[in-house]
Nucleic acid binder design. Structure first.
Lengths: 183, 183
DNA sequence: GCTCAGTATATCGGCGCGATACATCGTGCG
DNA sequence: CGCACGATGTATCGCGCCGATATACTGAGC
């Protein structure tokens, strides 16, 4: 997931770890964060894989650089990196239904193909509906022996699943409307 | 977290990995699951730490055992394991405010001391309120440049934070009422 | 001159996951 | 009767990510 997000953000501009993490915070905003303990090793991994390369000291152009310190490692996408991101964007597999995968992918939704968007949205809906049904079942079977606090948690979870399904239905309807328009 | 849940469940009865995982599913129900890839190594770890021990082949009593196959490793709590669980129950630290930690701890809330329950609930509320404020800020500053889908996600997140804060307030009020009663 | 917050990179141990492997048992179906 | 299948049962491997920790330089305020 981090890989996906990094590749997506580097499309905007070359960046070094520190600002990358800030952009990560902003665009994934309040819903998912990544620690430096994941970021730096992942950057290494992407570099080794050839998806990104380190920009060298040049690039004295735009940036005013009032500093003399080096140390910042600025990375930029390679052609292979762009391909890789396109592949990940087009993936509508199971990991894009779960909380984490869905949330991150959604942050790059305007760049993902319309049909893929649809499949992700529907997959997510199926996932949340399953959760909702599971919670409904647990609650109906619960009245007796189940712990009061657990029951409360289930109630909250059920409500939130229901709300998310409604939210997904709206998004899906909107997508369909858009698709109709473009016909 | 897995450690906590295992120790808590083994209070009911000695169990082997497979049924432990089922009980895990039931009591954490729909909101958190653990894979065998975590469970078995964790069981080892707890054994090494001395919190649990493997019951030996005896125990030919209650269980009818229509099978001749061995292989099942039945674990039971040690005195140190019970102490360990009590310590974890009494912990109201930061990890008990986050989604995962909070959810798991809640499953054992009826066994946690009332004052600890209160501190966890309040800590969680603070956490969710921060998230809520973050999302509100993001949404108000958003209208312009932010991606439509991200905004939708923020909307959903905001609603769900608001809902959870209300839910927490109810729980907290209930706790306070209970505390008044016992005075 | 000092301290403090922000900028910047990096590593370490540990937790949990998904994939995979392997073996046994009971049930149902042809 | 045989055999496939689903449930029972334990285990390992590599990997992604986290929190803690270390290090060091810069700019602002006092």
């Amino acid at each position: 997931m981090l890989e996906f997000a990094i590749l997506g953000l580097l499309h905007e501009a070359p960046m070094h770890g520190y600002v990358l993490r800030k952009r990560l915070h902003e665009t994934l905003g309040m819903f998912r964060t990544f620690s430096y303990g994941s970021l730096y090793p992942t950057l290494r991994r992407l570099q080794r894989a050839g998806w990104i390369v380190e920009e060298d000291a040049e690039s004295a152009d735009t940036e005013s650089r009032t500093w003399g310190r080096r140390a910042r490692r600025v990375y930029k996408l390679t052609a292979e990196g762009k391909e890789r991101f396109a592949d990940l964007l087009a993936d509508a597999g199971p990991q894009t239904w779960d909380d984490e995968g869905f949330g991150v992918h959604l942050a790059f939704f305007s760049r993902t193909p319309a049909d893929v968007r649809m499949r992700i949205l529907e997959g997510r809906r199926r996932r949340v509906e399953e959760r909702r049904e599971g919670l409904r079942a647990a609650l109906s079977r619960a009245e007796e022996r189940i712990d009061r606090y657990t029951r409360e948690l289930h109630r909250l979870g059920l409500e939130s699943s229901e709300r998310e399904v409604r939210w997904l239905n709206e998004l899906i309807a909107h997508e369909q409307a858009e698709q109709r328009d473009s016909d």
